[in-house]
Simulated scan of single mutants.
Amino acid sequence: MTEIHHGGCLCGAVRITVRGGLSPVSFCHCSQCRRQTGHFYATTDAAVDDVSITGEEAISRYRSSPEAERGFCSKCGSALFWRADHSGRMSIMAGLFDMPTGIDGGYHIYCADKGDYYAINDALPQYAASSTV
C-alpha cells in the first residue's frame, strides 16, 4: 500500500499531497534558511513525481541561489519547499504535514553556519556543510 501524506500552509491556500515515502527530517542551519524562517529549516524529501500541489497560484518562488529555488505561500507567507534545479526530489517543510506525520528526525546540516543563540542538543548526526546522506 502506498503511503499518502497531506499537508498545507497556515492559511490553507496551498495543499500538498505526497504519494510515497518521506525521508527522515533534515535540519538545515545555513544562513539562508535561518533568514527565511527565523530559525533553522526542517524538511523532508520526496520524489517530485510523488508530489501534487493544489493552490499553485498562491505559490511565490524565490531564487535563493543560482542552483535552487524556494517556494512560499504568497497569502500567509508560509515557507513550503526548497528545490534544486534539475533534481528529481524536493525538500518540503516538515511542519506542513498533517499529524501524525510518521517521519523522524534524521540529521543536521550546515552546522558550521548555525545561529549563535541556540545549541544542537540531540543525538542526530551533524555535518559542518551538506550531508553525505
Results as ranks from 00 to 15, higher is better:
D122R: 03
G77D: 01
G106Y: 07
S87V: 13
P100W: 01
I59E: 08
D85I: 14
S65F: 12
D98S: 08
T101Q: 09
I92S: 10
Y118W: 08
E56A: 13
G55R: 12
F97A: 00
Y107H: 15
D85Q: 12
L96Q: 06
S130R: 15
C76R: 10
D85H: 15
S74Q: 02
R70A: 03
S87Q: 06
S74I: 14
R63P: 05
F72V: 13
G88S: 13
M90G: 04
R89W: 00
L124C: 12
S130C: 04
A112V: 02
R89Q: 06
I103C: 01
E67P: 10
G115P: 05
A128S: 08
S130H: 07
G102K: 10
S64V: 06
G88T: 13
R61I: 09
G102S: 14
D122G: 00
D104H: 03
Y127S: 02
E56N: 06
R63N: 13
G88N: 08
A58K: 12
M93Q: 15
Y117H: 13
P66I: 08
A128W: 06
G71S: 11
G71E: 10
F97K: 02
Y110S: 07
Y62V: 10
H108L: 12
S64C: 07
Y127K: 04
S65Q: 09
G105K: 03
M90N: 01
F97S: 06
Y62C: 14
A119F: 14
R83D: 05
S130F: 05
C111M: 06
D104E: 15
G102H: 08
S64L: 03
A79D: 09
A79R: 09
G77N: 01
W82T: 07
D116M: 12
G55I: 02
S87L: 14
A123P: 01
L80R: 06
R83F: 14
S78G: 13
C76K: 07
S60A: 11
R63C: 00
A94I: 15
C111Q: 08
L96S: 02
A68D: 04
E67V: 15
F97H: 09
D122W: 00
P100L: 07
R89V: 07
E57R: 11
P66A: 09
A128I: 14
R61C: 10
A84Y: 10
L124T: 04
F72R: 08
D104R: 14
A129Q: 11
F97D: 01
D122F: 05
E56V: 12
R89E: 05
Y107D: 00
M99Y: 04
W82E: 00
A58E: 03
C111L: 13
A94Q: 03
K114N: 04
D85S: 07
D116Y: 08
K75S: 12
I59S: 05
Y62F: 11
W82C: 00
E69H: 09
D104W: 02
A68P: 10
S64R: 01
Y127W: 02
K114G: 00
I103W: 01
M90T: 01
M99R: 09
D116T: 12
F97W: 13
Q126N: 02
A128D: 13
A94F: 07
L96A: 04
A112S: 15
E67D: 11
R89P: 05
Y107S: 02
P125S: 12
G95S: 08
F81V: 01
T54E: 07
G55Q: 04
T54W: 00
C76Y: 01
A128L: 15
D113W: 01
G115V: 13
P125G: 09
C76M: 03
